[in-house]
Design a protein around this nucleic acid. Sequence first.
RNA 1: GGCCCUAUCGUCUAACGGUUAGGACGCCGGCUUUUCAAGCCGUUAAUCCGGGUUCGAUUCCCGGUAGGGUCACCA
Length: 447
Amino acid sequence: MTPIVTRFAPSPTGYLHAGNYRTAVFAYLSAKHSGGKFIVRIEDTDVARSSPEYEASIFETLTWLKLSPDETYRQSEHRPRHRELLEKLVKDDTAYVSKETPQAPGDREEVIRFRNPGGTVTFMDIIHGEITTDITDLGDFIIARSFDEPVFHFAVVVDDADEGVNHVIRGGDHISNTARQMLIQQALGLPMLLYAHLPLIFGDNHKKLSKRSGAKPLSEYRDQGILPEAMLNYIAFLGWNPGDKREYLSREELIEAFGLSRVQKGSAIFDEVKLLSVNQHWMRKLSDDDFLAHLKVGHRMSDFYAEQLRKAVPLLKERAHTFAEAREMLSGELSCLFNESILDRALLVAKELPKRVGMTKLALESLLGAIQSLPESLSTEAVKEALMPLGNAEEAKGKGGRGAVLWPLRYALSGQERSPDPFTLVAILGKEVALARIQKAIGILGE
RNA sequence: GGCCCUAUCGUCUAACGGUUAGGACGCCGGCUUUUCAAGCCGUUAAUCCGGGUUCGAUUCCCGGUAGGGUCACCA
């Protein structure tokens, strides 16, 4: 297979969103799969709208997502070359300087127009097959505002040729631009390119994802704690699949499996819920150390906190879909692992009081003994083994069943309606803390 | 509106012209260490419509419908 040299060509007029990113991903994957080149070219021909801030943010996001380009260019750096070819076209009379009546602010009195030969242009699209466009009603389209200010269509064609691009992989919204670009290309005697117009990605509103329609900047997903692996995996599967049953592929596996031939024709809707589940998958694959690093909780923490945090990692992996969510859990449903003053007397009493304070107290007291005789280093399994008999005994008696002892235990330890199961709590809290909390609960019940 | 593109469960998708139309995510239900989460099991749910071609169309062709894209001195 011939190596694919392609480019991702964002204009620095906004941040990257999932729509842009997906084009970048498919281009990147195509290039890497074939052993070719992935070029990033900043299309900043529109000086008025471009900004260095956006350019920086684009590269920053690309770096986060690990889509490193083999080469990068800035279109404005090619002005002299654009001018040279613009002059050539005018000299050949395939383009001409045209007097204009400005229609809008910023419009020039003179622009360069391409002589439209009329008729139709047909090209073979890798994804869609043959596409024919009628160019007659395009008229003599503008290719530059002046010799030093080429318009997108012109600059793209020239740059692609100069950079050795052989495949144009871009969003389907460019289909109608292709004909005029090919016209310029032919006039310049440049080599033909292969085109792959990707189906668009829609938002919930079933419209093309765009800044305007409120597509989130990718940086927001980063801040939310979405992993680059997850983003890549999810996006790659929007409009493509490997042809087998696999759903979770790493970067390397994606590069290996990717091919434009399996790209979907129809557009797809970006589904955050699915993204979340893909992210959870990748979070779980992280080592505990890496997980902790991604969690980014305060650098200065007590030894106790650090130790508890480490023990909480398996619980977080089990529960959280993002790192932001994990952080919330740390101060919410998992706070009982860190905070000493979690017992809420009102709740404890309210839940158990009306009928069976006595029973609850008894259950807690028997638990006390059982935990006392536990070894110092605890595993959830060992705790369960030691404490379950108490629950089973209760079960045999009927009435409240295991819940009659398990629920008070869990509640005495967590002080919360929702928490990890009681055995895990004992194991993570340790004997000393567990005993203290149960004592305290007994005290409250005794009042 | 002109031109162009597209059309399988709610969503992402699979299916050499022959399958009980499969999977994943979500939803719903059940089980489990009477919570939450996770896990396991299960249920629900789709070939847009109409014509062809064919022994046989999700699949090929045409028409319709619907959705989308594009019609800049933005990219």
